[in-house]
């Protein structure tokens, strides 16, 4: 037992180790948005052997402050494992409160600034990434990843800004927001979006039992599965995990799905 103790301690430390990205492979800049006036800090994780002359796919990550290290480290790991070229991981920091930027309408729980935020991404951030970092200009090469209100924004990007992103990783999306406004928006934009080729990954925690997460998720998933012939879709319910607990396991599942199915190598 005495011999086992250091080994167990090492395993515990290894299990608690937080993913870190090599600072030499990251780049940070700020943008004052013309669309909504907010000041966003953007962190970019560059692939190994990054060459500005090449074209790279991009993964835009919401709640960037919290998710940068985890997403960047695992994108690198999974792309290596699957033999795919890694993407530029672009993490968007908070310019406004997330209840402003990530919510599509003005309701009790949020202020409805998603339109301004999407304008910022579409007209300012994406062009800057293409110009300064060699980001691929095709819709199919761009992914948006968000959790909770971030997942709601990813769903809003899918319905209302489908020309911007070709891939969506929506984790525990707050589809209950404003009496399920996203279901309404999906219905309104279905005809325009349904033929587009796209990858969609949806994830949820099995124990998200707050009485608002499961049914709208099932309704949205069902609609996507039934009405979008151009879409490749997957869903994962993380066993025994709740809202925050399911986030990282579902990020892994979502990134794996993306790298396995992305358009180019």
């Amino acid at each position: 037992m005495k011999r086992l103790f250091p080994l167990l301690l090492l395993l515990l430390i290894a299990a608690c180790k937080k993913e870190k990205v090599n600072p030499a492979q990251t780049s940070t800049f700020c943008i004052q948005s013309a669309a909504n006036g907010a000041n966003y800090t953007i962190k970019v994780a560059l692939p190994d052997d990054y060459d500005a002359a090449k074209k790279y796919a991009t993964i835009y990550v919401l709640d960037g402050k919290d998710n940068f290290d985890y997403v960047a480290a695992n994108a690198k790991k999974l792309s290596n494992e699957l033999g795919k070229t890694n993407a530029l991981v672009v993490c968007i920091g908070y310019g406004n409160d997330r209840a402003v930027d990530y919510t599509p309408t003005d309701a009790k729980e949020g202020d409805g600034g998603a339109d301004g935020f999407m304008q910022f991404i579409k007209n300012e951030l994406v062009p800057k990434m293409e110009h300064d970092y060699g980001a691929d200009t095709q819709r199919q090469s761009r992914t948006i990843l968000g959790h909770s209100f971030g997942g709601l924004l990813a769903a809003y990007a899918f319905t209302n800004y489908n020309s911007v992103f070709g891939n969506y990783i929506m984790l525990s999306p707050s589809l209950w927001y404003d009496n399920e406004i996203l279901l309404k928006l999906e219905q309104e934009h279905r005809q325009a979006n349904q033929a587009n080729p796209q990858l969609v990954f949806m994830g949820l925690g099995e124990l998200e039992n707050s009485g608002r997460m499961q049914a709208p998720y099932a309704a949205f998933l069902q609609r996507l599965q039934q009405n979008y012939p151009g879409m490749k879709i997957d869903s994962h319910i993380a066993s025994q995990l709740d809202h925050m607990g399911s986030k990282n396991p579902n990020i892994l599942k979502g990134l794996r799905f993306y790298f396995q199915n992305k358009a180019s190598n």
Binding site: E180, Y217, Q222
Partner: peptide, 25 residues
């Protein structure tokens, strides 16, 4: 053991239910 069922019953949309029954430590 946790069990729950939710039903989305918004008059504007189709009615959808989701249920979970799960054992956890």
């Amino acid at each position: 053991y946790t069990a729950f069922k939710e039903t989305l019953d918004n008059p504007e949309f189709e009615k959808v239910s989701a249920s979970v029954s799960s054992f956890s430590p």
